[in-house]
């Protein structure tokens, strides 16, 4: 009984984790930008959703979409600002790492100063107040709603990448930026938009994150970033669809450890990440799109 529960929960959370990580995969896998502020963007999305709920009674499910435009815009602007120094650097990846780390510190500090240090949580009643029954077990309804939200959002990103002109341009840049420029793609502009989209989807998951994480607070940023990295590395960096695989594996691993060896479950994100990086850096899906 408990085993089935863990499996189902693992998949539900797994979908959420995929949703949580896909923005980072887009930004790191495609653009080689190590966005260490990823977790902080999630957290800001969560705070925004909280504010919108308590001030305007806006359902977080609507916030999921509402936070996207400002985040995309912010991402576009930030990218245009940092693209110059990054392209001139000897090691753009390392530079972006430190740079965005600095940005993450700034974001955390500003949020704490303006909104305080307390954890903000959302009542699941905001979305659904009764449990959902599945295969004879009761699960918090909220989990199903969030998982159900994650699927179309991930689908949207895949649609964007594979069915739109911008998305195709993005993939072209990912495989060969020079070639892409040679065929007339405005690399700077498309990259900026990609970064914006990456931030947009990340803020979006932040809107519903409080339901799954118990709440959001400024200091959680780092752990969320590591979690997202674990997911995308497991699922093969740069492979957007692989994020789903990575997320589900991660979710299952967490739930099963929580079931069988609970006091060690906090180690899972780190242990998984290290294991994959050391044993099979190209991830579960194998296709090495970036060498570790």
């Amino acid at each position: 009984m408990l085993f089935e529960y863990a499996i189902v929960a693992g998949v539900l959370f797994g979908l959420f984790y995929s949703f949580l990580s896909i923005g980072l995969n887009l930004v790191f896998g495609v653009q080689r930008i190590v966005n260490l502020a990823h977790g902080d963007v999630i957290m800001i999305g969560g705070f925004a959703s909280w504010e919108l709920y308590y001030t305007y009674h806006l359902s977080p499910l609507i916030s999921v979409l509402v936070v996207i435009p400002p985040a995309v815009l912010a991402g576009y602007v930030i990218y245009r600002l940092v693209a110059g120094p990054l392209s001139r650097a000897k090691d753009p990846e390392m530079l972006s790492l430190i740079l965005f780390f600095g940005i993450s510190q700034i974001l955390e500090a500003i949020v704490t100063i303006v909104l305080g240090n307390n954890q903000r949580s959302l009542p699941s009643g905001a979305v659904i107040s009764r449990p959902v029954q599945f295969l004879g077990q009761n699960y918090p309804g909220v989990w199903w709603i969030v998982a159900a939200t994650s699927v179309p959002m991930i689908g949207l990103i895949l649609l964007y990448l594979y069915k739109t002109k911008l998305g195709t341009a993005t993939r072209a840049i990912m495989s060969d930026a020079v070639e892409a420029a040679a065929v007339g793609i405005d690399v700077r502009k498309v990259s900026a938009i990609t970064f914006g989209v990456g931030l947009g989807i990340t803020a979006s998951v932040g809107a519903v994150a409080p339901f799954m994480l118990g709440g959001v607070d400024p200091s959680e940023g780092v752990n969320l970033t590591i979690l997202a990295f674990a997911v995308i590395v497991i699922g093969s960096l740069g492979n957007i669809a692989g994020t789903v695989v990575g997320g589900v594996i991660f979710g299952l691993a967490l739930e099963l450890t929580q079931l069988y060896i609970p006091s060690w479950s906090s180690l899972i994100p780190y242990a998984l990440l290290l294991l994959v990086l050391i044993v099979k850096p190209s991830g579960v899906l194998g296709r090495r799109l970036r060498s570790a």
Partner: peptide
């Protein structure tokens, strides 16, 4: 053996672990 950014994150994960 990892590249710079992977290394940085891996050490972070190690410390937390």
């Amino acid at each position: 053996k990892l590249s710079g950014s992977y290394f940085a994150i891996a050490t972070l994960a190690t410390a937390e672990a």
